[in-house]
């Protein structure tokens, strides 16, 4: 592979673009593919298959050929409400798993640089934050502030926008009360049941890092069930 192509792949990866790398294993040539970019002579004969694999975001050798396609997809965006202790561990796990993370907390004194390096921190109330960003069903929401004033506006937004994963920290009692309030606001049972609460799979742990692990395990499991990426 030419070093120029390698550098281009790195550039595209870091700007979160969707693209594919094509390699012809019979002559070693590689090129970058995106919708709208014309194919070179090395690949033009496989145009239909390449487009098909690209649209399905499928990687591998194209049926019985020597053409390899590797799809690079946009990471899934995870929005965490609440810059609490659990959040610090959660960010580490999420980054290793290639999720794109944004932490929202209006309380600036919770989000010091010491605690939160190399992560997007937004010091806004959730209502305000969601006004200025684009989300879609590939977005996940994790609420951890434990304060209904901060968590619930975000939950309502995520329910309306049908995020593929919504999880809320809080005991069973806290969650039951939360569900009642959402019901009073007009959300139906199906919508309310789509919230993972109390958040996380049962690991039995109580420490911040163990809770973060149980949350990330649930998120990964739900991500694998959800096939529309």
């Amino acid at each position: 592979m030419k070093i120029e192509i390698l550098k281009e792949i790195i550039k595209k990866k870091s700007s979160n673009e969707q693209f594919a790398v094509l390699t012809n294993l019979s002559n070693g040539s590689s090129e970058i593919y995106k919708t709208g970019i014309p194919l070179s002579n090395n690949f033009i004969n496989y145009k239909n298959d390449i487009e098909n694999y690209y649209n399905l975001k499928k990687s591998g050798l194209i049926n019985n050929t020597e053409i390899l396609i590797q799809n690079y997809i946009k990471p899934i965006e995870v929005i965490i409400i609440g810059a609490v202790h659990i959040t610090q561990y959660l960010i580490k796990f999420l980054k290793d798993l290639n999720f794109d993370v944004t932490v929202v907390d209006p309380r600036e004194y919770f989000t010091t640089k010491q605690k939160f390096q190399n992560v997007k921190i937004i010091n806004k109330w959730p209502e305000e934050f969601f006004k200025n960003i684009q989300t879609n069903s590939n977005t996940a929401l994790i609420t951890l502030s434990h304060d209904p004033k901060i968590d619930e506006p975000a939950l309502k937004y995520a329910l309306k926008k049908k995020f593929f994963y919504i999880g809320a920290l809080g005991s069973k009692k806290t969650h039951d009360n939360r569900c009642k309030r959402l019901k009073d606001e007009g959300f139906n049972d199906k919508e309310i049941d789509s919230i993972h609460g109390p958040i996380g799979i049962k690991l039995g742990g109580k420490s911040a890092s163990e809770i973060a692990l149980s949350i990330v395990a649930q998120l990964v499991s739900e991500t694998n069930k959800y096939k529309n990426f």
Partner: peptide
């Protein structure tokens, strides 16, 4: 998961070449 684990191997390749 269709998204790969975070992969910095290509960045490492560039660093090695340099």
């Amino acid at each position: 998961m269709t998204q790969p684990l975070i992969d910095t191997i290509l960045e490492e390749a560039i660093a090695w070449i340099e």
